Simulated scan of single mutants.
Amino acid sequence: MSVQRSRTRRIRRLSAGARSIAFPATERERERRRIAIMCLPFFVLATFAGFVPLVVMARMSLSAENLENAGWSLAAWETLLAEPVYREIAWNTLWFATAATLVSVALGVAIAHAIEKYSLPFERVLVAAVSFPIALPGIVVAFMVIVLLGRQGLLTNAAAFFTGSSPIDLATATTVFGLFLGYVYSLVPRATMVLRGTYAEVDTRAEEAARSLGATPLETFYHVTLAEIRPGIVAAFILTFRSALAIFGTVLVLQALAVVTLRVDYELGVGFNTQIAGAIGLVYAAFLIAFTFAGLRFVDSKAVEI
Rank of each mutant, 00 (worst) to 15 (best):
residue 68 E to V: 12
residue 107 L to R: 00
residue 116 E to Y: 03
residue 84 P to N: 04
residue 80 L to A: 05
residue 70 A to T: 14
residue 131 S to Y: 08
residue 103 V to Q: 02
residue 81 L to K: 09
residue 81 L to W: 09
residue 172 T to S: 12
residue 113 H to P: 10
residue 123 E to Q: 12
residue 147 V to H: 13
residue 67 L to C: 12
residue 127 V to A: 09
residue 116 E to C: 11
residue 68 E to C: 11
residue 85 V to E: 11
residue 130 V to P: 00
residue 112 A to P: 01
residue 166 S to N: 11
residue 112 A to F: 07
residue 141 V to Q: 03
residue 139 I to A: 08
residue 156 T to I: 02
residue 125 V to W: 12
residue 93 T to F: 08
residue 92 N to I: 01
residue 158 A to D: 07
residue 153 G to C: 01
residue 68 E to Y: 14
residue 172 T to I: 15
residue 144 M to H: 05
residue 83 E to W: 14
residue 69 N to Y: 13
residue 153 G to T: 00
residue 146 I to H: 03
residue 96 F to H: 01
residue 158 A to F: 14
residue 169 D to N: 08
residue 122 F to M: 10
residue 157 N to E: 02
residue 151 R to I: 10
residue 121 P to I: 02
residue 88 E to V: 13
residue 88 E to G: 10
residue 136 L to I: 07
residue 165 S to W: 09
residue 160 A to Y: 01
residue 72 W to Q: 11
residue 82 A to E: 12
residue 69 N to C: 14
residue 105 V to F: 06
residue 150 G to P: 05
residue 127 V to H: 10
residue 155 L to R: 02
residue 93 T to N: 10
residue 160 A to W: 04
residue 105 V to D: 02
residue 154 L to V: 11
residue 135 A to W: 14
residue 100 A to G: 04
residue 148 L to E: 08
residue 143 F to W: 07
residue 156 T to H: 02
residue 75 A to Y: 09
residue 93 T to I: 03
residue 120 L to Y: 07
residue 162 F to L: 13
residue 143 F to L: 09
residue 68 E to K: 15
residue 76 A to S: 07
residue 83 E to K: 15
residue 141 V to F: 03
residue 136 L to M: 08
residue 109 V to F: 03
residue 124 R to H: 11
residue 139 I to C: 05
residue 147 V to A: 15
residue 146 I to Y: 04
residue 74 L to R: 07
residue 165 S to L: 13
residue 71 G to V: 05
residue 98 T to M: 06
residue 81 L to A: 15
residue 103 V to P: 03
residue 101 T to I: 00
residue 145 V to E: 06
residue 131 S to F: 11
residue 124 R to W: 06
residue 103 V to R: 01
residue 98 T to K: 01
residue 88 E to H: 15
residue 149 L to A: 01
residue 72 W to D: 12
residue 147 V to D: 15
residue 85 V to G: 08
residue 144 M to N: 09
residue 85 V to Q: 11
residue 154 L to F: 15
residue 128 A to W: 11
residue 144 M to C: 10
residue 129 A to I: 11
residue 66 N to C: 14
residue 127 V to Y: 11
residue 143 F to K: 06
residue 113 H to M: 13
residue 92 N to K: 04
residue 108 G to M: 01
residue 133 P to D: 08
residue 127 V to P: 06
residue 142 A to C: 08
residue 131 S to V: 13
residue 97 A to F: 04
residue 91 W to F: 12
residue 154 L to D: 05
residue 113 H to I: 11
residue 94 L to G: 02
residue 90 A to H: 05
residue 155 L to D: 03
residue 99 A to V: 10
residue 132 F to H: 07
residue 143 F to M: 04
residue 66 N to H: 15
residue 124 R to V: 05
residue 79 T to N: 13
residue 169 D to W: 09
residue 142 A to W: 00
residue 126 L to F: 05
residue 154 L to S: 08
residue 91 W to P: 03
residue 138 G to H: 01
residue 110 A to S: 10
residue 155 L to Q: 02
residue 68 E to L: 15
residue 79 T to Y: 13
residue 73 S to E: 05
residue 124 R to P: 00
residue 102 L to Y: 02
residue 82 A to D: 09
residue 96 F to I: 02
residue 75 A to C: 06
residue 162 F to Q: 09
residue 152 Q to F: 14
residue 104 S to N: 00
residue 117 K to D: 14
residue 121 P to V: 04
residue 168 I to D: 13
residue 90 A to I: 13
